[in-house]
Every structure is written in C-alpha cells, then in structure tokens.
Amino acid sequence: MSKPTFEQFLKQQLPRQQDQDQLPEPQRDLWQGIENAINMPDPASRARSPWIKLAGVAACVSAGLLSWQVIMTQPKQDTMAHMSAFFEQEKQTLLVKYEAQPALTKDWQGPLQELEEAEQAIKLALMKDPDNAALLKMLAQVYQQQLDLITKVHQPQWQQI
C-alpha cells in the first residue's frame, strides 16, 4: 500500500489527537506532587505579613533593576563573557537565598558539577568560535539547567514530588 499524501495524513491524524490511545504518557507519577501541593497551607495567608510583602516588593525592584541593567549595558560583542557574568550573578543570588534551606537531595552537587564541566567545555569551544550561535545556545541551556537545578532542590512546595 502506498504512503498517504501529507494532506491525507493530516486529515487522518488531526481529529485523533485527543483520543486516549493517541496521547503520550508522563514518565513519572504526577499525582503525589499535586496532592502535596494542594494540601499545603494557602500561600495567600502566609503572605499577609507586611514584612513578607515588603520583601516581595524589594525583590521585584531588584529584579527590575537587574533586567534594566542587562538591557541597557549589554554590548553587542562578547556575548559569552556577558552571559557568563550575569549567570554568575544569578547563581550567587540563588545560592545565598537558599543558604539556610536544606536541599531535597544530598547529592545535588554531583549533577551541578557535571553541568559546570559541560559549561567549561562549551566555553573552550566558544573561544575558538565566539559567534557560533549553536554553541551560545548550548551554553545558555547549560546555565539555565544549573539555575533550574539549584532552584528545584530547594523549593519546599515541590520537595515531595
């Protein structure tokens, strides 16, 4: 039998995209985390303290100033160096923020170190080819993964997922 044309393929597949047997499955049980999150005390009631509100406002102002600084001071050249500088700032801010908070797992430093090694390898490659968009993107992804990892292992509401 010959392969259907693209139009036929779309016509056949699109209406079936919501069929239960056509839907992908998550690779882990998601309910446990949802249950934990919905049984947590209402964050709105915790946020009633004026000090917490004030801290929130201060954090927003700092984030705004940082973003403004990024946009206004970003030079067109040497993207890698600036990306690295801002990443370091973000990373240090997160590490300080979570300093007193226990991490979800004890061995999170291992994956972080692996990401740092990947970062170094990409930086080396970028030194030879500074305008390589694919490498810059990879570096950005490795930075983002580091920030995600630090945040994830310290966020209490998701600790039991």
């Binding site: 393929f9 779309l10 597949q13 699109l14 079936r16 995209q17 056509q22 839907l23 992908p24 499955e25 940082l66 973003s67 990024v70 946009i71 970003q74 993207t79 600036h82 990306m83 801002f86 990443f87 973000e90 968009a133 810059l136 993107k137 950005a140 930075y143 983002q144």
Partner: peptide, 30 residues
C-alpha cells in the same frame, strides 16, 4: 525565558530526534 533569552535572542528549536525516540507512546504526527 528569563534573562538568558534577553542576552541571546535565539528561538528555541524543537526537540532533537534522539530525544523524541526516547519518548514512548508518541504518535506519528506528535
């Protein structure tokens, strides 16, 4: 899409084929 995307304004490409192969239960169109 946080500060990193501001520094590198690149559009995210889709998933790599190797990653897609790891996702089981995907139909042809997905």
């Amino acid at each position: 899409k946080n500060w990193l995307q501001k520094v590198v304004s690149l559009e995210d490409s889709g998933m790599e084929q190797a990653e897609i192969m790891q996702c089981q239960s995907l139909n042809g169109l997905d």
